[in-house]
Design a protein around this nucleic acid. Sequence first.
DNA 1: GAAACACTTGGCAATATTGCCAAATAAAAA
DNA 2: TTTTTATTTGGCAATATTGCCAAGTGTTTC
Lengths: 118, 118
Amino acid sequence: MKAEDKKFYEAKAAVLKALAHPTRLWMVEQLETGEKCVCEFAGVIDADFSTVSKHLNVLKQAGIVADEKRGKQVYYSLKVPCVLNFMHCVEAVLSARAMEHLSMTGQTAGRNSNRGLS
Amino acid sequence: MKAEDKKFYEAKAAVLKALAHPTRLWMVEQLETGEKCVCEFAGVIDADFSTVSKHLNVLKQAGIVADEKRGKQVYYSLKVPCVLNFMHCVEAVLSARAMEHLSMTGQTAGRNSNRGLS
DNA sequence: GAAACACTTGGCAATATTGCCAAATAAAAA
DNA sequence: TTTTTATTTGGCAATATTGCCAAGTGTTTC
């Protein structure tokens, strides 16, 4: 593998890594309906304000969200909405896994329950 | 947030985390054209055999790939091909970032160069 | 059966991530 | 101007990830 390709895979992995945290994943999904300020996130989850801010910064550094200060507040918005699309695929991975687990434990999930996972 | 929702976000983040490594990302893309044995991966990248094996195990645990032993070799295959689709979106994030960097340094990437990133 | 092959597993040190606290900054309100 | 509100930053300990080496497992080949 060429050094150039390696850089490319590292860059792509960095974007995925930014998304690969439950809190950040939740944040990204919250942004689907529009921009939110830090306080709106902090109000819902029980984490320190600074923790919320740092998570948002990780998403910002990865290029996934944008921030804009207006008055006292900083509003974050989804910069690349397509990230929401692949959540469906991630959920498909979970479904496939769940299905497998059912069959291993001798249970059934019903006929044709395996559709649409690819 | 309910405990149930929290579990769901944790599960989804775990799948993304499995993908969030340059070597594993590369492996997943290699599997696009069909199954490969561990030796085929090990032959290309310069990492220990055990390292390759462990990366593949991470993907397997996440439910992204399946393994099958045939003779002396173990073949890995993509279980949920849709993971390949969202690479395009990840690349879009990188493009958007690159574009921004160009404009910040006073360069230009040409007219309409910002198309198709969402 | 012994040796070779294709992996997997255990152990471990180096490194990175996470989340809390306390302190710093920045804007608006008093 | 002082205070309050909203957020970021620095520091740090707990935890997780990574990748190498050495040793183990299962399967062919000799």
